[in-house]
Deep mutational scan, measured.
Amino acid sequence: MKVIFLKDVKGKGKKGEIKNVADGYARNFLFKQGLAIEATPANLKELE
């Protein structure tokens, strides 16, 4: 799953980066902790 990092995550990505991560990792950790959001077309447009 592609995500947009909202904060730096050690060993995974830095704020503003778009990366592929495991679905479970994204849903169970990154999204719940507010560290990333899903890289949907709408979210990508907001990032620009």
Rank of each mutant, 00 (worst) to 15 (best):
K2R: 13
E46Y: 11
L6P: 00
I37K: 06
P41I: 12
K7Y: 11
A42S: 12
E17Q: 10
G34W: 05
F31I: 13
N28R: 11
L6H: 00
G16K: 02
F29R: 06
G13F: 14
L30H: 00
N28I: 08
N43H: 12
I18W: 03
T40G: 04
G24W: 15
T40L: 06
V9L: 06
P41S: 09
A36H: 00
T40D: 06
K15F: 06
A36R: 00
K7P: 00
K2S: 12
G16N: 07
K14G: 06
F5N: 00
I37Y: 04
Y25H: 08
E38G: 03
L44A: 05
G24P: 11
E38S: 06
I4M: 08
F5M: 04
N43K: 07
G11T: 04
K10L: 12
E38R: 09
V3L: 04
K10E: 15
G24H: 13
N20K: 14
K10P: 15
D8A: 06
L44S: 06
K45T: 10
V21R: 00
K15T: 09
G13W: 13
F31R: 01
G24K: 13
V3T: 01
G11A: 05
K12H: 15
F29T: 09
K7H: 12
A22K: 12
I18L: 06
V21H: 01
L47M: 11
D8H: 08
A22Y: 11
V3N: 00
R27M: 12
T40S: 09
L47E: 06
A22I: 09
F5P: 00
F5D: 00
A26M: 08
G16E: 01
L30W: 02
K32M: 11
P41G: 09
Y25A: 06
G16I: 00
E48Q: 14
K15E: 06
V9P: 01
K19P: 00
D8M: 04
L6G: 00
M1N: 04
L30K: 01
V3R: 00
E38D: 04
T40I: 06
K10V: 12
M1I: 15
E48D: 11
E46H: 13
G24F: 13
I18G: 01
N43Q: 08
F5Y: 07
E48R: 07
K19H: 08
L6M: 07
G16M: 05
K12Y: 15
Y25P: 08
